[in-house]
Nucleic acid binder design. Structure first.
Length: 370
RNA sequence: GGAGAGGUACCCGAGUGGCCAAAGGGAGCAGACUGUAAAUCUGCCGGCGAAGCCUUCGGAGGUUCGAAUCCUCCCCUCUCCA
């Protein structure tokens, strides 16, 4: 089997950004990259063919949700997640660590792992570092994440420290549990907004040794300044030769700042969820398509946008579909937003290739002032 | 012609002496959303506004300290009988 290999093609001369290439058994991923979120073995409302047409190179799947339904063992029997959902390109799976945060009301954290009370039927399930690795092995993702605890914000220094240390212990157990070298395993740096905890966590994870390193528990409610401080301080300390993944982030601006700090992989539900909630991204900021201002607007979401939606449909039509709760609204909006996100990443990769990322970034920020 | 039911805010619809500027829906308007329990959630929704004040429950009178609610007359709608 082919191991996941990461090469850096160019470093930007003016900042920490880099243009890289991640080779997986399911294709090459050009970085920096945005991974659309396909929690339940689907990027909501789109087909795999549409995702490929949009230029998606790698998707994110979720261990917790697929374990609960339909079951990772079942997906394994059915040929793995790629075959199951008919996605031929790369997949990264989250370990369920985010659900420790998002489903905090129905779980209990212990040293052994986290006991979830299923949000589907109330039954109890222990997810441990070992089971999280096992689940992801059954899913057959190209990149697996260690089982961690995603912290909420704010948390006390003491809790952040205890949680971080437990996440490190869990990371070591995850590494020990991994059997196959053809599935990459990434460690996750925790420590909330406390930079010294983040540094200590990263050092310990490096000592264990992972194929890539991620920043977790960011954009969970902390002030943007805090997020940028952690991002700007910790990212440069992460191993240069390994892929760096900023988990769950973020807005278009966040992606640009992340790339600038040296991040290679991103994922976020924002383009897909917000699309379903009527918020559409453009170079000049976002719009709420349901606003009455668009009722008679015969122009596209964004002038010059090459996406399917903008090539054919007016804002007035999209507003109508959304207000009428027509299913097509969710699809068309999602197509546009993902196109925007993926094109944004492609534009950054191109700027990096030409060594002019900073100039590109200034133009990006200027356009959003309008 | 007779018997009965009913007219409440943009629409539907609760309320039948004070806790009512009036429940609840819907529509409308706006906002939020960051490793997805999300096609979800939140706010506003008579007027001016900080408190507060003003106008409002088909119309006009009346009873009462106080009326969407009780009384009188009028207008209109619906159902059944002839």
């Amino acid at each position: 089997m082919v191991e996941v290999v990461f090469d850096i093609l160019t470093h930007d001369p003016d900042c920490a950004a880099r243009r890289g290439r991640l080779v997986t058994a399911h294709g090459t991923v050009e970085t920096p990259v945005f991974m659309p979120v396909g929690t339940q073995a689907t990027v909501k409302s789109l087909t795999p063919d549409e995702l490929q047409s949009l230029g998606a190179q790698i998707l994110l799947g979720n261990s917790y949700h697929l374990h609960m339904r339909p079951g990772a063992d079942r997906i394994g029997r059915l040929g793995g997640l790629h075959a199951f959902m008919q996605w031929p390109r790369a997949i990264l799976t989250d370990s369920g660590g985010f659900q420790v945060f998002s489903l905090a009301r129905i779980n209990q954290i212990e040293e052994a792992g986290v006991t979830f009370q299923s949000h589907i039927d109330g039954s109890r399930h222990l997810i441990s570092p070992e089971t999280a690795v096992q689940i992801q092995l059954q899913l057959g993702s190209d990149i697996a994440m260690v089982f961690d605890e995603c912290n909420s914000y704010p948390v006390s220094y003491q809790y952040a420290q205890e949680s971080m240390q437990r996440t490190v212990r869990w990371a070591a157990r995850s590494k020990a549990a991994r059997e196959h070298g053809d599935q990459a395993l990434f460690g996750i740096v925790q420590g909330s907004v406390f930079v010294d905890l983040r540094k200590a966590c990263l050092e310990q994870l490096e000592a264990i040794g992972f194929d890539g390193y991620a920043l977790g528990s960011l954009s969970v409610g902390e002030p943007k300044e805090e997020m940028l401080t952690v991002l700007g301080t910790i990212t440069p300390l992460m191993p240069v030769s390994r892929p760096r993944y900023l988990m769950g982030v973020g807005t278009p601006e966040d992606l640009v700042e992340g790339v600038r700090a040296g991040i290679d992989l991103f994922d976020c539900v924002m383009p897909t969820r917000n699309a379903r909630n009527g918020m559409l991204f453009t170079a000049h900021g976002s719009i709420q398509i349901k606003n009455s201002a668009y009722a008679d607007d015969d122009g596209p979401i964004e002038e010059g946008c090459a996406c399917y939606t903008c090539q054919r449909f007016s804002r007035a039509y999209l507003r109508h579909l959304f207000v009428a709760r027509e299913l097509l609204a969710y699809r068309l909006n999602t197509l546009h937003n993902l196109h925007y996100y993926l094109q944004l990443m492609a534009a950054m990769r191109e700027a990096l290739e030409h060594g002019r990322f900073e100039g590109w970034r200034r133009a990006f920020l200027k356009a959003r002032q309008r």
